[in-house]
Design a protein around this nucleic acid. Structure first.
Length: 265
DNA sequence: TCCTATGTTGTATG
DNA sequence: ACATACAACATAGG
């Protein structure tokens, strides 16, 4: 599920726990989501700490706790955050549960491509600050995109859009949505894009991020039928702009959906 | 049984 | 050193 907008929505789900103490930490220490972190330390430090604030960037979340504690969560493929009743009994995929007086904050991820990170210190950890500048920031410029596409010139544009070092938060469905709106064929090599195409790509990156954040990021709403998204997985799905049947094929190792009427090589 | 899945990452190759 | 392709990770559901 989680790309930029879903991750932002998940961030808000832990808002009920802000400014409240963690009474107990329940976790599955051997779960793969703890690769690279120390679950025993997380349990020890977060017990008694107060959740102070949260932030979202790309497909990741950062939660700040009292005592200079920072909890990072990457949502992977199936990560999800929920707020459950305080007496909630963790299930198999609930790898980290922060029990508070009024609710329990739950991180679950059944496929475990997600990740838990932890940092102790006065400043944000480097694994957070090194995330690429957001697509909706001033640093995401046409010329930055142009330079990146040249460097990745022999890779299909679809695969390039999934590279987090330049397109943080873009995942499989957003990449297809952007290319469909920019009317660019997903197999087109990055270096083959014309200047008007690069400008369209840049514009649609911003448009899809902004509008997905409004619709999904605010309240997990359904994207309108005028988007590619609601049609991309249905068999016999049709392009909402042209009515032509959509094509589904693997590009750069990921299933990709496009409209052959609009997106040509 | 086999295939698919809104994601990275390590490794082999060019 | 840099760019590119792809298997591997772990699990559930059709």
């Amino acid at each position: 599920m989680p790309e930029l907008a879903e991750v932002e929505y998940f961030r808000k789900r832990w808002n009920p726990g802000l400014n409240q103490k963690v009474k107990r930490v329940l976790l599955h220490p051997k779960a793969a989501v703890f690769r690279g972190s120390d679950p025993a330390l997380i349990e020890e430090k977060l017990t008694g700490a107060t959740l102070l604030s949260s932030a979202a960037a790309a497909k990741q979340l950062l939660f700040r706790f009292s005592g200079d504690l920072w909890l990072g969560l990457h949502m992977g493929m199936t990560g999800e955050l929920t707020a459950q009743p305080a007496d909630y009994e963790p299930r198999k995929a609930d790898h980290l549960v922060l029990v508070q007086a009024k609710q329990s904050l739950v991180f679950s991820d059944f496929r475990m491509f997600g990740r838990v990170q932890f940092h102790v210190g006065p400043k944000e950890p480097v694994w957070w600050t090194s995330i690429a500048p957001a697509i909706l920031s001033d640093e995401f410029t046409v010329s930055a995109v142009e330079t990146f596409l040249k460097r990745r010139g022999r890779t299909p544009i679809k695969a390039v859009l999934l590279m987090q070092e330049r397109f943080p938060g873009i995942g499989n469905w957003m990449a297809d949505e952007i290319l469909w709106r920019a009317e660019i064929h997903p197999k087109k090599l990055a270096a083959a894009l014309t200047m008007p195409e690069i400008k369209a790509l840049h514009k649609q990156c911003r448009w899809v991020c902004a509008n997905a954040l409004k619709i999904v990021g605010e309240n997990f709403g359904d994207l309108p039928k005028s988007w590619l998204f609601p049609h991309r997985w249905e068999d016999g799905g049709k392009c909402p702009k042209t009515g032509v049947p959509l094509v589904r094929e693997e590009v750069g190792g990921r299933t990709t959906c496009w409209s052959p009427a609009l997106q040509k090589l």
